[in-house]
């Protein structure tokens, strides 16, 4: 059997790996989104007390300052010593928490780029702070955030392949299986894998770009 037959035969495994990568991606981005938004809102509008603010800063610094591969090891081996956690669970957790640190920064600078006069005008008309954030600030911040968020999306797609090191059977590991079982053809297999990552990336980017266009309003051009 030459490599193309093998690839054809094992393509479903690659697709399955791609599926795992997509689920991992969706999960870590969702966790990161919720966490990042919560952190951003707390930093900008929450209590100014350092007991609230410092832990957030420390969290953000750590998760942005330590290589993800180290975090994956720490989470997998660290947590599995205490509770039973799958490699997949550990990867979602480590990468979700890290994405939260990055997304909090994206959201924060997006919120901060909304001019202060917008909040002032909303409050001056009797809107509560919550209502002003929801109806006036958030829709504008979202438009500022979507570009940087697309970058985060793209880099996280690529980083899902690192979950490989703790044994998550995602796309890269599936490729590795094929290579070891056929002894060779590294380049061909990885070329196919690269193509799959690329397609996923472009599809996601196109969807986000379409969303950005849908939200487009004069005055918010980049």
């Amino acid at each position: 059997m030459d490599i193309y037959d093998v690839l054809l035969r094992d393509f479903p495994f690659l697709l399955k790996g791609l599926g795992v990568a997509i689920v991992l991606l969706a999960a870590l981005l969702s966790i990161g989104f919720v966490l990042g938004m919560a952190i951003c809102l707390t930093q900008l509008y929450g209590p100014k007390s350092r007991f609230v603010q410092w832990p957030l800063v420390i969290y953000e610094r750590i998760f942005r300052g330590v290589p993800i591969i180290i975090m994956l090891f720490i989470f997998f081996y660290g947590i599995s010593g205490v509770v039973d956690i799958s490699a997949f669970g550990a990867a979602i957790l480590a990468m979700g928490l890290r994405s939260g640190a990055y997304q909090s920064q994206i959201f924060r600078s997006a919120f901060q780029s909304v001019p202060a006069g917008q909040m002032m005008a909303a409050r001056a008309m009797g809107m509560s702070k919550m209502s002003a954030i929801r109806n006036i600030i958030f829709p504008q911040a979202a438009r500022h955030a979507i570009g940087p968020w697309t970058n985060e999306f793209s880099s996280e797609i690529k980083e899902t392949s690192l979950a490989y090191v703790i044994g998550v059977v995602e796309l890269t590991r599936q490729a590795h299986y094929i290579i070891t079982s056929t002894q060779g053809n590294i380049l061909t297999v990885f070329a196919v894998v690269a193509l799959l990552y690329f397609i996923l990336n472009r599809t996601g980017n196109s969807l986000l770009y379409a969303f950005e266009r849908k939200l487009a309003v004069p005055g918010f051009e980049k």
């Binding site: 001019p115 005008a121 409050r123 001056a124 008309m125 009797g126 438009r143 005055g219 918010f220």
Partner: peptide, 20 residues
């Protein structure tokens, strides 16, 4: 204050229209 502000119109030097 929110109820009071709703009864007072404020016009700013730099308009502050909601830009979205």
């Amino acid at each position: 204050i929110d109820a009071i502000r709703a009864r007072i119109g404020f016009v700013f030097q730099d308009f502050n229209l909601f830009s979205h």
